[in-house]
Structure formats: C-alpha cells, structure tokens
Design a protein around this nucleic acid. Sequence first.
RNA 1: GCGCCCAUAGCUCAGCUGGAUAGAGCGAUGGUUUGCGGAACCAUAGGUCGGAGGUUCGAGUCCUCUUGGGCGCGCCA
Length: 555
Amino acid sequence: MKSVIRQLIGGALVRAKENGELELSVAPEIVVEKPKEEKFGDFSTSVSMMLAKSERKKPRDIAEILCSHLKNGEGQVVASVEVAGPGFINLKMAPTFFLQRLVGVAEEGVDFGASDVGMGRKVLLEFVSANPTGPLHVGHGRGAAVGDMLVRLLKKAGYTVSSEYYINDVGNQMNTLGRSTRLRYYELLGKGGEFPADFYQGDYIRDIAQEIIDRHDQKFLDQSEEESLPFFRKYALEYILNGIKKDLTEFGVGFDRWFSEQSLYDDRLVDEAIDWLREKDYVYDKDGAVWLKSSAFKDEKDRVIIKQTGEKTYFCSDIAYHKNKIDRGFEWIVDLWGADHHGYVPRMQAVLEAMGYDKDVFKVMLVQFVSLKRGGEKVSMSTRSGEFETLADVVKDVGVDATRFFFLMRSSDSHLDFDLKLAKEESPENPVFYIQYAHARICSIFRTAAEQGLNLPLPSKIDLSPLKDEEEFSLIKRILSFTEVIEKSAESLEVHRVPFFLHDLVAAFHGYYSRHRVVSEDKALSLARLFLVDCLRTTIRNGLAVMGVSAPERM
RNA sequence: GCGCCCAUAGCUCAGCUGGAUAGAGCGAUGGUUUGCGGAACCAUAGGUCGGAGGUUCGAGUCCUCUUGGGCGCGCCA
C-alpha cells in the first residue's frame, strides 16, 4: 500500500524537477509512514525535510512545492494534501482507495498477506539442532517455534524455503550416551557400579535401558564394552531422536530434512572440505594439530579442525556442513542458535567469508533464553538435577497454541519470561485467547447472519458504500497493512511483529464491535459490515496461520 | 581481563531504515446489561526511555564513555 503512495510522491518530485522548482541532483529515498494520529491523515512523508540540506531550502517550502504537484496529480485517490509541523506532508486518501483494496483482500482469501519481496530467493533455515542426548527442553522449544514461524513467514513473503535439523550424532557425547545407557542397563539387572557424574543423569536413560532389557533381555551382560557399546550408542541415539521427532511433530514443527553429521563423514564431505581449505591455504599444521586461519577473518584466534589424536572437531564437520549448504545452491543461509553459542558466530562467519561469500549470505539468529515461571516464581531448569521442564511437559500442560504464541510474542533477542500459570489460564490476561476470541466472535456473527438469511455476495458484487464510519476505515487500514507487516517481519527475521500486529488489530475490532452492530435491520449496511468483518477474520486467520496457531470457530 | 546481548510505566514488553505530544497488556482506581459471545468495552492514574557526553533541523533509536544484569571466551559438541 505504501509503495503506491511512494509512487505518487515520486511523481510529484519529478514534476517539480521538470518545472525547475527543485534540483534533485540525487534521487531521495522516499519515506512513507503512517502518522501517529489519524487526524494528520492516512500517510505522511518526511522527504521535504530530508531534501532541505541538498536543496538549500526550508523544509516547509519544499513541502509546499510538492503539495501543489500532488494536488494537480492524482485527484482520484488523494482527497487532500497539507503541510504540517516542521515540514511533513500529510496525505488523506479518498474512501474508494481503501474500499477497492478491501475487495482485494476478500479475493485473495488465504493468500492475503502474501508478498513477492523474497523474489524466490532460496533460503535454508537450520534450527533446533539440539544434541540427541536427551529430550528437548523449553529453550529448544522457543527455537523450534521461532524457526518454524520463519519457515511459514518467509514462504508467505515469497522466498523459497527449506528447513533442516542438524543431528550431532558424532563425537564424545555419543560415546557418553552409549556408556550411560549401558551402565543403567547393568544397574537395572542388578549389576551396576558407580554412576559417573559426567554421564547423562536423566531418568530417560533408564527408560532406554529398560526397553533394551524388554527386547533383548540379558544378551549384553557378558559382552565387553568394546563389543556392546556400538549397540547401546545406536539404540540410545535412535530412541532419543524418535522422541525429539515426536515432540516436534506434536508441537506442529516439521523439517524438510534431518541432516546427520555422520553422513558428512560417510560421504567424505568433511575430507573434501579440508582439502578445499588446504588448497586455498587457509589451514596449517601446528603442535600436531591442524588449524584454520580464522583469525584472518575477524575471529579472535585460529581454531583447531583436526585434533592431535586425528579426530576432527565439531567445528570441522560444521565447516563441511555449511560448505554443503552453499554447494546445494542456497542463497541465504540462516541458522538459529541458542544465545549461549554466540561465541561460535565469528568463526562460522569466518568460514563463509573464507569461502568468498558475502556477509549477508550467512546469518546467525541468536535466540535468547527462556526463564520458566509459575505464578511469578522462578522454576529451576538444570539438566543435572533432572527436574528441568521438557518441551513435551510444557506443551502437555499449556497446549500448543499458547506455548507457540508465548515463544513468538517477544523479540527473539530478549530474554523470555514464560509463566506457565498465565499461559495455561484461559483468562483475559492471556493474549492468545484475546486474539482467538475475536476470531470465534466473528464466526459467531456469521452464524447469526446466516440464521437471518444474510449471505455475502461475491467480492466483486459487494456494495461497500454504506461503510462511512471513521472506525470502519481505521479497521480497513489496519487490515491492509498486514502485507507490510509480513514483509518487514520476514526481511528482518523478527517474528514478534505479527503477534503484536494481531493484538492491535483485534483490539480495534473488539472496540468497534461493542459500539456498532454488524447485523441489523439495514440489509445493505449489514452486508457491507459483514464483508468488512469477514476480511478481518481472514487477516486474523492468516496471521495466526503464519504463527502456527489455530483459529477456532468456537471456544 | 576481552567479546556479544539486554536495560523504556509497579510487572512483562512494543516502538518499523532517526521524525510530530514515548505506546500496549497485566496490576491499581472508577464505570459499561433491555439486541450479533462480558474470554469484551470505556475512563483515570502511572515515565528525567539506567547515567553522562557527542553527531543534527530532530535521538528511546546512531557514536563514545559509564553503571547494572545475562551469556560466552576448549584440540567439548
């Protein structure tokens, strides 16, 4: 919508230049925004202030010039133009400008809000990627909700999106996992020894061991660790991974691909990546290890990629993974990591830079921690104590919709207080219900309308002229700004904009609803209002859909 | 010690690439029924945007310093 306004102002600038009133040696960026107060008009621009310096004129004088050209230009859509304050130009649009676009909303339906700003750019989102050594906790849940919303959001904004979960199924932790399981197995069979502190303490390890006993009885009791460890490692990994997949599925989160770290080794991609770096002279040998010259690319020091022992580091396979992402043709690579991994960002960026890729090809999004609370009281969350809250527990307790909404309603780079009590309550304090309630309420209006034999005609046949109230136009303008919210939210990867938008939209609706009757004796007015309210419902539903939150017809 | 993130109303947080009088929810106080769902609506109170400088027509927003909190700084993953 704003782009239309931008074109209008651009036209006025051109005419002013042709008339010799403005020099315009460089084309200015035309900033169009919605004025804070509606009495200022529908749109405003600050171009005249930005031009003041280069034109050596007062902002207000430039504004006057542009105003005259705007008035002459598009009499059809622009109702009035005026200069205000330090030099803002305020535009008021004709009612038809908005009404025509509202018809477009109904025509687009579920696609309303979609955009092509992404221009089909191939983007890969990697998220969650939690180590398969235990169940997902709430922190992973936030990453999952944010990542999954980004998938939906970027698709809607015209990107070509793929999603991946990187499985760290290599390294010491896998051995520790296998040993932990093996030891619990012995323990359950009455032959356990001391359980080391650095083994995985959680009860889920016992569950795995019990399942192995159920299926294989005492088969491994007499085997050496060397013999049986591969089995325990593999069994535990698959068990946990299946649990993770199940939790995510129940949370409404899916991936296009589960990418195994081990597969990078099996497919020789790790070796190829090392060779490649060697050719480029980005690695060197020192102290019996192999190092990457990451310090040449803004990292604070060089990093080991092959240990003295000959094992590759986690970083090493991650290099191969990200090289592979590039090789698969992705143009925008977005990783969502927990905030505790921020120290790892520079070295990964260094790798991409060494590969010769532009900085904006690779983006790491850090998702900050979640503090669990219950009625204001902190809930402790340490893995060691075993009393941490898993994602599955929270979802079971609070529900998918509320959990997702709470994870998405805050900017990802600020800490999140998640109050379990509040999220669970079906109370007015809970923002999820506030929005869903509006949707249900609109559905209810339609049930009433249907009882009275009122049915909406096709969008092209609707007569919207009965809509005259300012509040109605205020609602229409909000609805129409949805596409821009999607675009901005996608481009900036800021998911919280959508829930904020929805909250404001719905608040405006609830107010309107309490002051105006949608279904009344006036049939023409009723139909026009039903149409408006239907567009509102479409917007709410599409907004919630992008968040992966349901839009119930009844509550 | 070095680096990253955060700091806005009593609490939890918005504030769009710098723009007009800094917003919302909760909490507090006081109101709203003869009609479409009161899980709602309306009104009032509440702020030196952590502090100090700077950049400019203009700063919550950008820069420097500083204070307080979170998190990192492995041949772990």
